[in-house]
Nucleic acid binder design. Structure first.
Lengths: 162, 162
DNA sequence: TAAAAATACTCCATAGGTATTTTAT
DNA sequence: ATAAAATACCTATGGAGTATTTTTA
């Protein structure tokens, strides 16, 4: 199975016209005909009934069409997810926070965060400010919300609330 | 996205060793390394941390792995379905059902079904009603038998038993 | 007879091979 | 010192192009 050929199949199934499908795929008609033939041979099944005047789906073609659309959509979704990850819009954010932040800071921050980055999951860990610094250093969390004065070495800090 | 490369990725992810993965894929090691590099470039993301002594998945690789396995399984399932069709089974009906239907509803339905459509094969999958709705939407099953009230969006429901 | 698919061929990109080098333990 | 990945280079398969022929409404 080959996603490229499946895309070709879907284009022809939707256009029911090799010339127009080829245009839509930005290629010429003969290689498209060939690829469809190869797909048919691979599956050992006719997918289209064709004359020079009329192209129509066979039963097998009608069966394959929604499956192909679905599979292609899922493949695209994998691509998209990887892309989002790469751009920091997906993944898991590990947060450490002190108990006292649980009542005001965290709820506000989390709802705003989810609004802006809906694809990102998060883990919440309660820990003291000192533990947060250690966990940050060790790479066990990505972000800490605590009371500690910033430790100057390799921990970046921002004032959130006073 | 290209299923071939994804298969290569899965092999390396499972072996964590380019040489063994290449063997398993019946190819030599250098082109496998190349294809993995090309996949990484295509996704613009490192999938493996590698030294000459140790290969391990990056976060992105760990994320991709189950997605890849799933996508490949679905592609294979499309192949299999087409193959079954071709062999004169008019098709396959994929049914999801809740365990509680196993005692009365399913046996009756199946024997009647087989009587009326002897050419059609079926696959049975036990799953909760919620999972059935998801699976229907995703096109992994054709029919669900559950207790759920019908989800109004794009799921058609009929009362079978009360 | 004309629109459209199939066929015939050419070309080039790329997947895969072998030989070798680099690297880290 | 050695196992294993990377690199360099080569080959050949096959995907895509153009030109042409065949087919049928």
């Amino acid at each position: 199975m080959n996603l490229q050929r499946l895309r070709y199949f879907v284009a022809v199934a939707e256009e029911l016209h090799f010339g127009r499908a080829a245009q839509r795929l930005h290629m010429s008609q003969p290689p498209l005909s060939q690829q469809i033939r190869l797909l048919e041979r691979e599956l050992d099944t006719a997918l289209f009934d064709r004359s020079t005047r009329r192209v129509s789906l066979t039963d097998a073609g009608s069966f394959l069409y929604p499956e192909a659309v679905r599979l292609l959509a899922e493949a695209d979704s994998v691509d998209r997810l990887m892309d989002q990850r790469r751009h920091g819009q997906a993944g898991t954010l590990r947060v450490g926070f002190v108990d006292s932040a649980a009542y005001e800071v965290m709820p506000r921050a989390l709802s705003e965060y989810r609004r802006r980055w809906p694809q990102v999951d998060y883990e919440l860990h309660t820990m003291s400010s000192d533990e947060q610094v250690k966990a940050l250093r060790a790479g066990r969390i990505d972000l800490g919300i605590g009371r500690a004065a910033a430790d100057p070495e390799r921990v970046e800090a921002t004032l959130v609330m006073q």
